[in-house]
Design a protein around this nucleic acid. Structure first.
Lengths: 252, 252
DNA sequence: TTGTTGCATTGACAATTATCAAAGAGGTGC
DNA sequence: GCACCTCTTTGATAATTGTCAATGCAACAA
């Protein structure tokens, strides 16, 4: 089998963590966005508590019955799809405030795996109950739709990346995306720790790990970033951005 | 500017077509799936009529305010994303019974273009009203969520294709996908007319049009399909499928 | 018919990325 | 500290796909 994340087979999750949207500093990034205090209280009621996951453990696996979606409270996840013939595609990396598990709604079964890339915590949001509550709270319903729609738009961005960009462009886009998301969470946009391996980055970007590694090295040689294993410092964000708008074949 | 679809600038749509889900032979494929007669009647009420589009005309464009989603009644569409720097990625091809426009929910603005690749008809589904109705009809709400979730899962499949497959595998997957969808609509799974150009196929598959053309020719040489311009006949579906499960690096 | 236009095919060659292989770095447990 | 393990880096070479260019084909209009 592929050098997949870890050797554990059972999704070792620890129940019983007390959580409340109304107390959560991620609420503006997450599902309760825009709710009144009153409605937020009703959402608190519904959240099925939290779960802690150790690094390498699965939040869910392809084939698991779908019951809940999850909000990342802390930590870092990847989702990937594994086909019968051994193909493995990382479909995303999720960090605090982001929602996981919406792939399972359509089939009632999860269609990808979600793995913690570091020790993490999630909130469990039972989906049937979320639907019930969202038919009473219009803003919750609408926000759920927005979250799903944004996931579709994000996927389109990945298709664009995979379909039209070259290796270095893909990596630049990836770094800038991480930078922006860390920044939105109050962390440095210029300096961060990668939670995933070169192979996982490569899988996400449709490249082999060696190609990812070489692109990192090239960026470093050109003074765009500084890399030390998983530690990244972006030295020149503007110039990194120009890598994405290449030959300047502009129109108007 | 790129050899984009057509020279029209205004989305020339013709309003006033009378439609009713309850009378529609696509209802089992489309949004009203699973509704009672009674609820279907309420959905009929909400559908904002139909629109006809001539080939080459836009159903919506990136930047248009989002108001409705659309169900394809007949015809064939493509959606694509165009970036400032001139990249163009086809994100999907849609046929009868499929839903268009969900990309716009999250931002209240459409994020891609939808173009008719042949003369087509769509049903217009005002989204705010759909949300209102779906908070009253649980099965409608749930089905909407399923439709959105399946779009996410479909996108994951495209990522897998773009991230892990080689040119011929991508084209085989593409043909088999079309075949299956035509089949589900009562058309021949083995013989059909492509509505899109080689360039559009290439954009969808992350390949150049020449590569697509060469792959078609190779398939024909090997007796898998017969190609004459846009007319395709799949001669050997099983063997085409084996192209997707390649080196047989199976596990168990 | 003939010319025009857009799309498709094919060939020769170049660029990009993958593959294979070896060595280096860093962390963990003993 | 030392051994082990995983991950990363780098080089040499091969495979795949892109690029450029020419020709072919089909539909359509004059």
């Amino acid at each position: 089998m592929h050098a997949n994340v870890k050797q554990n087979v059972v999704p070792l999750i620890t129940p019983g963590l007390k959580v409340a949207c109304s107390q959560c500093n991620l609420r503006e990034l997450c599902l309760p966005f825009g709710l009144s205090d009153d409605d937020m209280g009703r959402l608190d009621h519904l959240i099925g508590g939290g779960r802690k996951l150790k690094r390498g453990h699965y939040l869910y696996r392809a084939g698991d019955p779908f019951e809940s979606i999850f909000a990342v409270r802390s930590g870092f996840f990847k989702t990937d799809v594994l086909t019968e013939d051994g193909r493995d595609q990382v479909t995303g990396f999720q960090m605090a405030g982001e929602i996981l598990g919406m792939d399972g709604i359509g089939t009632e079964v999860h269609t990808c795996n979600a793995v913690a890339l570091e020790d993490s915590e999630v909130c469990l949001i039972p989906f049937t109950e979320l639907e019930m509550l969202s038919s009473e709270i219009h803003s919750l319903q609408h926000h759920l739709h927005k979250v799903m729609s944004r996931e579709i738009v994000r996927d389109h961005g990945v298709m664009m990346l995979l379909g039209t960009m070259r290796a270095e462009e893909r990596l630049a886009a990836f770094l800038l995306n991480l930078s922006q998301r860390f920044s939105a969470r109050g962390y440095s946009p210029a300096e961060f720790h990668l939670r995933m391996t070169r192979e996982e980055i490569g899988s996400y970007l449709g490249l082999k790990l060696e190609t990812v590694s070489r692109a990192f090295s090239r960026f470093q040689d050109e003074g765009l970033i500084s890399v030390q294993q998983k530690h990244i410092r972006i030295v020149d964000i503007p110039r990194l951005k120009t890598l994405l708008a290449p030959t300047d074949g502009r129109i108007g």
